[in-house]
Write a protein that binds this DNA or RNA. Structure first.
Lengths: 205, 205
DNA sequence: CTGATTTCTTGCCTTAAGACAAGCGCAAAC
DNA sequence: GTTTGCGCTTGTCTTAAGGCAAGAAATCAG
């Protein structure tokens, strides 16, 4: 499955470079300097990468593992915002901007390794590498598109369609995430999701 | 109310500079050069700033007026994504990135003036003014935060709470936008919104 | 293996919101 | 003025999804 490996400087550097080069050119020399600003955080299954009330003043890239971001509604029920698997970017932008503490928890569903870049280091990168500012802009642009798509699909589809959409687009997560969290991600109760699944099985037979 | 004025170069420049300086420093000289890349679009009430199937390859800043962004769900019902009033930023990022044509329409609810920056001009700004890249990053960061907040409130609140939230946060729009569009923005039918309003009035008496 | 905890399913009943259709009030167009 | 159309309300009926509670199945800990 997913092992809890220890990373060498070299591994970190080459992995990060690969991510950065999806958006901007990076010289091998710059890559080393940039990678040096990251720190690697281990988060064991059930442990928290970020808790409500803390400031999430860093960018994170999931190298290995799987995490779940959730918050609470007025009635204290949990609501799953997102899952972060390998190569996912994670940042609690509300608290990142420093305006307020995080209302969101990020907990590991599997033992995970996250490469984190603290805001102060990030700011120095922005100052010293104009290309990095570009990386940030492009990264945010991509996330905005996916937010918008998700928002749409969540509002316009009914519970069954949302589940089908998830099945189609995240087949891998189905195996790795307990159904109750998938339910809460899809804004359904686990009870309802269970019924939806039963009906789908019946219609297949 | 909202007049359909003609803008001078000077007006455009000083208004834009004010917007930019919320995020980055801009010299008066740069301001003139930047403003020259914008064009001013008039969109009369009921006319479209963007239609499904077009490429929205520009950034827009609403100088005056009010617009509504909407798309269609599977059953061809309308769904309102957003309202853009004075000082709002509007960009159809899905089609901006060039990946696909817009699935979204943007129509004017009032006569409007929008300052538009075409993607090719935007790209040249990004290349020549590193600060502008920063502006883009910060702008996107802010929008991401508001998307996330909106997503949360839309999923976690029931119809009545969503309406109350809107009342509290957008009191001005209530007066300027027909209720049926507010309903569709809140993911309720106009019928249900009407009932919600009646119940609220009854409980006040 | 055994007991405990968590995850998932199911039945019964309730409820929030939608579908449809009729009608009212108002403002613009003729 | 009358007519037309739009925005909003209301009544009746239907439906998708939730609340609660019990139990099955799977997983975990000792």
């Amino acid at each position: 499955m997913h092992y809890f490996s220890i990373m060498s400087e070299n591994e970190i550097c080459s992995w990060l470079t690969k991510q950065l080069r999806l958006y901007i050119p990076v010289t091998d020399e710059d890559a080393v300097n940039i990678a040096a600003l990251f720190r690697c955080r281990k988060v064991g299954k059930g442990e928290f990468l970020l808790k409500e009330g803390q400031y999430g003043d860093w960018w994170g890239f999931v190298y290995q593992g799987l995490l779940r971001s959730y918050s609470h509604d007025a009635e204290h029920a949990e609501y799953t915002n997102a899952f972060f698997k390998e190569e996912s970017f994670t940042c609690e932008l509300v608290s990142f901007s420093g305006a307020a503490v995080s209302q969101t928890n990020v907990v590991a569903l599997e033992d995970s390794l996250i490469l984190c870049l603290d805001k102060k280091n990030l700011d120095s990168l922005f100052r010293n590498h104009p290309d990095f500012e570009r990386f940030g802009r492009l990264l945010y642009e991509k996330i905005l598109v996916s937010y918008k798509q998700r928002n749409l699909f969540r509002v316009r589809l009914n519970a069954r369609e949302r589940y089908l959409h998830f099945l189609k687009n995240e087949p891998e997560l189905i195996k790795r995430v307990p159904l109750k969290y998938i339910a809460s991600y899809l804004s359904v109760t686990d009870t309802s999701l269970s019924r939806i699944r039963r009906k789908m099985q019946q219609s297949v037979r």
